[in-house]
Design a binder for these strands. Structure first.
Length: 495
RNA sequence: CGGGACGUAGCCUAGCGGCUAAGGCGCCAGCUUUGGGAGCUGGAUAUCGGGGGUUCGAAUCCCCCCGUCCCGACCA
């Protein structure tokens, strides 16, 4: 049978698509750029969502829901916001068989409609803070889409909070970025760099944007989550004032923060291999698949033996699937469950029954071990915990190995080379070669918008963020222009 | 919005003016098998993306349209 998945070394982009389609996570839709999330993909989203929701509630947030239709006039109230989103808006002009008096935008994000209501709900400092989140779909008409990473419609959560003071809002922005960082690393096994975005890359309408950035296996960066300090911009645009403790009147301070179904793309591209999906155990709706191996004459005995293993695992709280289908061979099942990313496979056949053992196989390492039947639940628990830890460590080691400090522009150019796909000019360094490996480059930056824009134009490399905790000792020269530096930045090509 | 590739059964592909559109995978039934994607037999599934034109005759040639993917441009 033909190989279903294109190896990463042949075509990384195709490999990613093959995984998504073959693992039945998502499929294309009749409408360009949109995506159908299939049950196996949606189940991952649900687990991710449940855990994140738990963490939001634990930090004092409540869920609400606002409509998806936003009057066009609302979007125009914040100047930068409308400029940023205008090119990607879907707008409803007709409904109920008539042309609408005012067109309705399908939300690209909900700041405007939410702040229009916050105006009604906030009068005094006693009404603050409002710590709301919503799980919703949004639509952004992007020119170029990719399954999970950038789709016309996507699912996300958006937190929108209102505060009495600037400090409180800033603290919220930081707290939520930290929630994302911890969630990404602990639950998704995604090591990330947390930091502040440059002005050029910040959210339209924000005073400051913070992000977590992950490194994919092709060494490109993926923005995995953002948290914005919105200052008083939206409060002013929507005239949301409150009576202060001192009896004065002031505008409310705001934040917003979100992660989306893009995280599924990040998980796939970080952990998976040429055999298919690799999932952190935390996200797997099936942690273990038990494959019985039988012949017609010993089928009943093998099923009984394997069934006891399944029962023992379930009793220990494991999520188990028992693949008793006799229409496909064991080999077929092995390949199929590997493609689907089930963390542990247990094989139980007549030889095992005779020895009182089973074969346990780890999806990430392929390691096979013989386990005594009464030790299976404990060994499974231990293996799943080890996988959760190892996947993060492996990804972190990869990120560290592909992060390099650069001092000047020459070094930066040599690190990145020319981007792939621009192989016309021979004799130049190209991305992905030994001489120009690419990855995250860490260097000093003067803070100049022109420097950054020039780098993007020349090399397609952008500043991902200015990492927190790495901003000391920035008194050298900007690695782009040589002027005195103000920040330490992570430079990378990104999705 | 530019450049490229493409659209034939659920999927992949052949057919590139001429008989009833061919094959593989998958699917269904039965038998047989099962420790890394098994085998045999039988079966179902196509208005050849849509519309128009040329022709005695179009999946095939021409025109228009629609759609998808890839690469750019764009993108909190």
């Amino acid at each position: 049978m033909a190989e279903k998945i294109t190896p990463r070394s042949v075509d990384y982009s195709q490999w990613y698509i093959d995984i998504v389609l073959n693992a039945k996570l998502a499929d294309y839709s009749p409408v360009k750029g949109c995506m159908v999330i299939r049950p196996r993909g949606y189940a991952i989203w649900e687990r991710l969502q449940a855990e994140l929701d738990r963490r939001f509630k634990a930090t004092g947030h409540q869920n609400a829901y606002f409509p998806m239709f936003i009057p066009m006039s609302f979007l125009k109230k914040e100047a930068e916001h409308v400029e940023g989103f205008k090119p990607e808006l879907a707008v409803v002009t007709h409904a109920g068989g008539e042309e609408l008096e005012e067109p309705l935008a399908v939300r690209p994000t909900s700041e405007t409609i939410i702040w229009s209501k916050y105006r009604d709900w906030i009068q005094s400092w006693r009404d603050l803070p409002l710590l709301y989140n919503q799980w919703a779909n949004v639509v952004r008409w992007e020119k170029r889409t990719r399954l999970f990473l950038r789709t016309t419609e996507f699912l996300w959560q958006e937190g929108h909070t209102a505060h009495e003071t600037k400090d409180e809002a800033l603290k919220e922005t930081e707290t939520m970025l930290e929630v994302y960082r911890a969630f990404a690393e602990e639950y998704l096994c995604l090591p990330v760099v947390a930091g502040r975005k440059s002005d050029a890359e910040k959210f339209a309408g924000a005073v400051a944007t913070y992000s977590i950035e992950a490194m994919m296996q092709d060494k490109k960066a993926l923005q995995a989550g953002t948290s914005h300090f919105l200052g008083q911009n939206f409060a002013k645009a929507f005239e949301v004032q409150y009576q202060t403790r001192e009896g004065g009147l002031d505008y409310v301070w705001a934040t917003s923060w979100g992660v989306s179904t893009r995280l599924l793309g990040a998980i796939i591209m970080t952990h998976s291999d040429d055999k298919g999906l690799v999932l952190p155990p935390s996200l797997a709706s099936e942690e273990i698949v038990v494959v019985p191996i039988f012949k017609t004459d010993n089928k009943a005995a093998v099923l009984e033996y394997a069934g006891k293993v399944v029962d023992a695992l379930k009793a220990d709280g494991r999520r188990v699937v028992f693949d008793t289908d006799d229409g496909s061979s064991p080999g077929w099942k092995f390949a199929e469950w590997e493609m689907r990313g089930v963390p542990i496979r247990i094989e139980a056949g007549p030889k095992d029954a005779a020895n009182g053992t089973v074969v346990m196989v780890r999806r990430d390492t392929g390691e096979k071990t013989f386990v005594k039947v009464d030790e299976v639940p404990a060994k499974a628990r231990e293996t799943l915990a080890a996988m959760q830890k190892d996947l993060l460590e492996k990804a972190r080691a990869f990120q560290d190995a592909n992060t390099k400090d650069v001092a000047d522009r020459d070094e930066l150019v040599r690190f990145f080379g020319k981007e792939k796909g621009k192989l016309d000019a021979d004799g130049e360094l190209h991305e992905g070669t030994v001489e120009a490996p690419g990855g995250f480059a860490r260097g000093l930056w003067c803070g100049g918008r022109d420097c950054e824009a020039q780098l993007k134009a020349d090399l397609k490399v952008t500043i991902r963020n200015l990492p927190f905790g790495q901003q000391d000792g920035c008194d050298g020269a900007c690695c782009l222009c040589g002027e005195p530096a103000k920040h330490r930045a992570i430079f990378a090509r990104s999705y």
